[in-house]
Design a protein around this nucleic acid. Structure first.
Lengths: 350, 350
DNA sequence: GTGAAAGCGCTAACAA
DNA sequence: TTGTTAGCGCTTTCAC
């Protein structure tokens, strides 16, 4: 693998000058070689690479960033890294970024404005070339700082009147429509929706889209069956309990995310209800785990890869082609229904 | 919340000189004020802060790092960010780091040496002041680069003969002993172990510790019941199947991590086996989800908070007190048994 | 195609 | 207590 490298303690870590001296060229030539400037002759380039190898030289990115004005850093802020959806998203985003020579700074805001404020401050100080905020709520004033510092921004489902801000539109409707139609076809009409926290934009969109689709499909909407939860497993359990406290119980539950659905699955099991015989459950996200619940979860897939690609591409364009007049400012990511084992016809009327 | 900030497009983002000019002081005074040097008079300090506020100035961390030689960055490399244990760990580590004014660079190595190599390169170029590698395998030659560049390192269960490398010793034995004794007390003697991938040091340690504890306790060890899995849910399912293919089946399974145990739970359920009536299962890690499996998972807790604290403290000491002769080079993190619902007495002999 | 030199934004040594 | 100044390690003109 990597050859073993050693260094005498008295030698300082090598810099560009050391490389230049060893290769008997100027530091400008070393810089050009490293950066792949097309002008360097093969002869010198080879000498330089040899010296770099021999000294085990690594360029100092702070110096590079300082002089070039480019940090090659993107920030990504998620709401809660503990929700499995996000690690999967971050993993994708990081892979793409690294493949393009960027680094990422990850932060979990936990929907706490104070945390978010400092994490945006840190990103500005590190001179990130863009920030992706894929779930967020009432934090517009905080975003001002990014705008002020001319930092490109990509948001999910939120437009900002700023040339450096792009938006990813999430077409939940397609997936939710497929889900509701799937349920309708199975014979369900009593369908509840366990929503995400209303302080998060995407949670509201999901709820609204569910509402709209139900109307479209001509299914009855019971307001009491639309319940705000918090996108956690515990929240799903609690939502299930609130549904049970009602005079009438639905035959199917659509959840705003998979964790909520997993909570419902668990609660139903503990109540002696059998899914999908007694109750159909549909999630949203299609986290890796959804395939392994009991029964396997029917869910609306929101592709992390698509989302990560869109977010990265939005930022990359802003960072590298900001002068391009026909820069893409809107991206669309779609959703689709993944049918697994948690849906079935409703039980015969009692 | 944050006051709304705006700026005319023609103004460039403010630097330390702009602040100095507005506050009518030298840039040195601004620098001292920001860094809390004790010498600045209240009068000037107030003027400086006012100017900073008014201009909405954020110091450039690249410039700071370059001249001070301190990046206030730590790297953390995990094996697979998709295993829920790691996001929980990262979350803790980040919180502590930010509270101490550090930033973190997260990377997932996926046990791929090539990925690891580039991620270490990136960390060196960013001049991280320390790297935490909490799970790793045969990557010693790659670590040489960090040693070469004088970067402090903290490893789990692996000693490196280098003054800047600290070690976190994980006392799995205490937890595993409690688990095995718990099973023994319930009447189990046929105990299998589903190990993690042998290319990971900690997986081998866990297996060895299980082996040692079984001997200590005087329980019979069946070599065929010690099976290498891969720390994933699917791996647990596969391990369960391999166990079933054997002429005799154990009455209890201890797993090298919780994901494996969750796989076993699932496989058992699908085989019509009831846990814990027909089979007892014990995990290791105590991820958040362990509480919510069906039945709730009895597991050996490895505190993420403790681990994150130890890792951070090791790096912080190295970064800030490297001259301190009695710097702590070894840290111990313990484990303990969390009894939940997946263990019970073995079924009566057939 | 190559080198000399200016300077990115800041900290720290030294002077006052 | 404050200001002046030299550089941190590099990229990028601008000459040659």
């Amino acid at each position: 693998m990597a050859r073993r490298v050693t260094r005498k303690p008295e030698e300082k870590t090598p810099d560009i000058r050391a490389v230049a001296a060893l290769a008997k060229v100027s530091i400008a030539t070393v810089s050009r070689t490293i950066n792949g400037a097309p002008v360097v002759s093969d002869r010198l380039s080879k000498r330089v690479w040899q010296a770099i190898e021999q000294l085990n030289y690594f360029p100092n990115s702070h110096a590079r960033s300082l002089v070039s004005g480019r940090s090659r850093l993107f920030g990504i802020i998620v709401e809660n890294i503990t929700n499995p959806f996000f690690p999967e998203l971050i993993q994708c985003f990081e892979e793409i970024a690294v493949a393009h020579g960027y680094e990422i700074l990850v932060s979990s805001s936990n929907s706490d404005p104070a945390v978010l404020t400092t994490c945006i401050r840190r990103m500005i100080e590190r001179k990130v070339e863009g920030v992706a905020m894929l779930t967020f709520g009432e934090e517009e004033p905080i975003l001002d700082q990014l705008v002020f510092h001319d930092i490109p921004l990509v948001l999910a489902e939120f437009q900002l009147d700023n040339p450096k801000t792009s938006t990813i539109l999430l077409d939940y409707k397609t997936g939710i429509r497929a889900a509701v139609e799937h349920l309708a076809k199975l014979g369900h009409s009593k369908i509840a929706f366990l929503a995400g926290p209303h302080k998060i934009h995407s949670a509201i969109t999901r709820q609204n889209d569910f509402h709209a689709v139900m109307e479209e499909t001509g299914l009855p909407i019971q307001k009491r069956w639309i319940i705000e939860c918090d996108h956690t497993l515990k929240g799903g359990v609690a939502g299930f309990a609130r549904l049970q406290a009602l005079p009438e119980f639905p035959t199917a539950i659509v959840c705003s995310n998979d964790m909520t659905a997993i909570g419902v699955l668990r609660a139903a099991y503990l109540q002696g209800m059998q899914v999908p015989r007694d109750l159909s459950v549909i999630g949203l996200d299609d986290i890796d785990f959804a395939e392994f619940t009991l029964p396997p979860l029917t869910t609306i897939r929101l592709s992390r890869a698509d989302l990560a690609h869109a977010a990265f591409e939005a930022l990359r364009q802003q960072a590298e082609e900001s002068t391009n007049p026909k820069l893409q400012r809107e991206f669309l990511v779609s959703t689709s229904l993944i049918q697994r084992g948690s849906t079935a016809p409703p039980p015969a009327e009692a």
